Amino acid sequence: MTTRALNELRPVTVKRGFTRVSPGSVLYQCEGTTVLCTASAEAKVPHWLLGSGKGWITAEYNMLPHSTSPRKSRERSGKVDGRTTEIQRLIGRSFRAVADLPALGEQLITVDCDVLEADGGTRTASITGGFLALVDCLLTLERPDPSRFPLRDSVAAVSAGIVDGRPTLDLNYEQDFAAAVDMNVVMTGGGRFIEIQGTGEEATFSDEELAALLALARTGIRQLTQIQQEALGDAWPFPIIA
């Protein structure tokens, strides 16, 4: 495995249109982590939104049996573990934070994130890749006002942590396991925070270390936003961020 600088992202590969059936499908790879992100629409909304004119965006997340070793048991209907629930709620919140739900109309968008290979950062990869699938899906929909796109900004996510006493960006599994502090950061392309999840693993961290981790995350998300722009090309629905 190539040695990275502490402030360097893992190499990212994006393949749009990976499946034939889904209106939005992206195979998102960051080194040893691979996630298939698909997005689809249904002409319905949760009961509390009926008649409101607003749509809804939700997400589902799953790790396939051989995404890890040893084999992970499949999650059957009604038997979703706590980690899975927490991650898919995070993904859904991240997309809704930048959504213009009235512009969507009464439609339900589901973004499915299926982890094919896991080597750290599966939730952040799901958000970054899932956003691309979401945009592709939204571009196919009929909307109440075609000139009004249902997203106000882009979304990307990245991890950072204190590994061997040093702030490190985009942790793989080995680094995450060894980290004294582990953080996941979700931000918009415009540079606003959506969510920060930071935890000391049998350790504490200072104001200075927190600031260093947030600065690393901001740098990483700026790069990921550029990768998203390049992947979508002319389909990018926002002003280009230099």
Rank of each mutant, 00 (worst) to 15 (best):
T33G: 03
G78F: 09
S22T: 03
Q229K: 07
W56D: 05
V12F: 03
T124K: 07
T199D: 08
A212L: 03
G130M: 06
R10N: 10
I221C: 13
S94W: 03
A125K: 10
S94N: 04
I227H: 01
D100F: 05
G32I: 00
R143E: 04
T13C: 00
V185Q: 06
R83L: 07
R83E: 09
D182A: 14
I241R: 15
L104H: 01
E208M: 02
A99E: 13
C137W: 10
R16W: 04
A5N: 10
Y61D: 11
A97Q: 11
G32K: 04
I162R: 14
L169T: 04
G191Q: 06
E202I: 06
L138N: 02
F18R: 08
I194L: 10
S206C: 01
R10H: 14
G17K: 11
A160C: 15
G191C: 07
R10A: 07
K15R: 14
S154R: 12
D112L: 01
T33C: 11
M1G: 15
T122S: 15
G129C: 11
L171K: 06
V115P: 01
V80C: 03
T110N: 12
G92S: 14
R123M: 13
P65W: 12
L138F: 00
R192G: 10
V80H: 10
Q29K: 15
V115W: 04
M183L: 12
C113M: 05
A215T: 12
T225G: 05
L151Y: 06
T225K: 05
V98Y: 02
G92C: 03
S40D: 11
V21S: 14
P239F: 00
E60I: 07
C137E: 07
T140F: 06
P237V: 09
V12K: 01
A125N: 09
M1Y: 11
R152C: 14
T204C: 11
K79E: 13
A212Q: 12
R123Q: 12
I162S: 11
E106F: 08
R10Q: 13
S73R: 15
A118I: 04
G32P: 00
T168S: 00
A212M: 05
T84D: 09
E117H: 14
Q229P: 09
A160E: 03
T124M: 04
R93T: 03
E209G: 01
Y61W: 12
I196R: 01
D112M: 02
L224C: 10
